[in-house]
Write a protein that binds this DNA or RNA. Sequence first.
DNA 1: AAATGGTTTAACCAAATGGTTAAAGTAGTT
DNA 2: AACTACTTTAACCATTTGGTTAAACCATTT
Lengths: 202, 202
Amino acid sequence: MVEKNTEEKIIVAAEKVFIEKGLAGARMQEIADEAGINKSLLHYYYRSKEKLFTMVFKIAFKTFAPDLIKAFEGDDDFFVKIERFVFAYLSIIDKNPHIPVFIISELGNNPKRLVDIIGYLDLNVQPVYDAIEEEIKKKMIKEIEPSDLIINVIALCVFPVVAKPIIKNIVFKGSEEEYKKMLDRRKVEAARFVISAIKNTD
Amino acid sequence: MVEKNTEEKIIVAAEKVFIEKGLAGARMQEIADEAGINKSLLHYYYRSKEKLFTMVFKIAFKTFAPDLIKAFEGDDDFFVKIERFVFAYLSIIDKNPHIPVFIISELGNNPKRLVDIIGYLDLNVQPVYDAIEEEIKKKMIKEIEPSDLIINVIALCVFPVVAKPIIKNIVFKGSEEEYKKMLDRRKVEAARFVISAIKNTD
DNA sequence: AAATGGTTTAACCAAATGGTTAAAGTAGTT
DNA sequence: AACTACTTTAACCATTTGGTTAAACCATTT
């Protein structure tokens, strides 16, 4: 048991409830219960549901904005960079498997929310674009739109987790074990798949 | 204006509202308004919100369960099958871009819902597995777990749509046009990417 | 003309919900 | 001892929400 102050306890509880039920489905009482406090105190710290939600959402989003830029700087081989990124990103997802669905759901209900957040994080994808274009110029990889490549890499990481119920039940006939094995395999195989797709064979 | 009976009008209206707001966020009054009827009549046809939602969800899910089996039967070249599937599936998504997020969201909130549905649709993925394994045996494609390949193909189709707000705002800096161009490109490029990844070069 | 099934109106209800208020208690600080 | 910040209790409130009921209306069919 780690001692936590009330503010933190509330955030942790709110995260849990919001991620599980969404903004509309979550109840302030449930968040208070989960935090082991009462509703009055909850409102004492965070004036409204909307404000509390916004905090939680921002935290969740920050956790998941992949640090693409960081992964792609440095002198390492481009393919090694991809391998490292996929492994790192899938490891984060492993630890927080419900966050991607949460973000996608709430952004689906209210895409405007993102506009506020973008300001806080400075996400400049240009360096990654440049790195990809350089590899193309050097004929190390095939011609591809940089944005397409980025989207593909992230898709191969995120989709298996957001579609878990479907994949687990239809592809793996309900086996949690088979599903987990697939996710684990993917930490290496997703990068292999991508590299194999773009590597130049001239 | 096509004349519709009330039952249909309700389903159409319910689809719209549920997809937009989710189960918890949708209001029966709003559905009634959208259908141009009153709440009494709404309950006259569909006794409860939950029942109406279940109907809508099943319809949405059916629309989106990709007909993998159909796409992979026949004598055509395996790579042509992939190309055809990707094109067809992305075209369906084009026409109903909000359904994937809807399914993922609601399944995230209540994964049990899927178990009911699976009975209705007979989804046997075995033939697709077999087809993939045969290609591997014939050394036409590289070694890959069939389930991984299936997941990858669908990920490359679905993810760009479910993550639209993020992709549009971060990758394409808010440009709807650039985003749409990417989706269109993908109808051909996603298959190219996959084929390039798995084609054997021995 | 009577019966039928769909439709409207409008009032109604119980429960839930986000949020408030006020008064009292507690622990540490000055 | 007084002050401060945090915490609890518990009552309270306005609004919303899913759902019901009953009476009347209307068009078609019998």
